[in-house]
């Protein structure tokens, strides 16, 4: 997949995962791998950005004698996801255009 496009989608994917439930680094990667390619090194900056933007909250909790960081979506994050989903029809139109299928017209290629 196009790298730039993937970058944009990854943040949304992480938020979508956290919409379902709170989670931690390893689990997020494990769950998302099924849907989109994501590595350990790419996840962390995404989480930091989301946290800086107020879309995600972090908290530490003890697990098996060590500290683990858990991530949780905020209302702001939910709002962002909601807005994106409402505009999916716009996205679909663009995807159609890229594919060469404007409304009604047949593929030119």
């Amino acid at each position: 997949m196009d790298t730039q496009l993937k970058k944009g989608l990854l943040e949304l994917c992480v938020m979508a995962r956290l919409l379902r439930s709170e989670s931690y680094g390893y689990q997020i990667i494990k769950d998302l791998t099924e849907w989109i390619e994501i590595s350990e090194s790419t996840l962390y900056p995404i989480l930091r950005r989301l946290e800086a933007g107020g879309e995600v909250e972090v908290y530490s909790a003890e697990y098996h004698n060590r500290i683990r960081k858990y991530y949780k979506i905020t209302d702001k994050g939910r709002e962002r996801l909601r807005e994106f989903n409402e505009e999916q029809w716009k996205l679909q139109k663009i995807l159609n255009y890229i594919e060469g299928q404007e409304e009604g017209k047949c593929a030119a290629f």
Binding site: Y44, R66, R68
Partner: peptide, 11 residues
């Protein structure tokens, strides 16, 4: 950064 990677590796 190191704490993050430590956590992931341990997991």
């Amino acid at each position: 950064q190191l704490e993050y990677f430590d956590e992931i590796l341990t997991d």
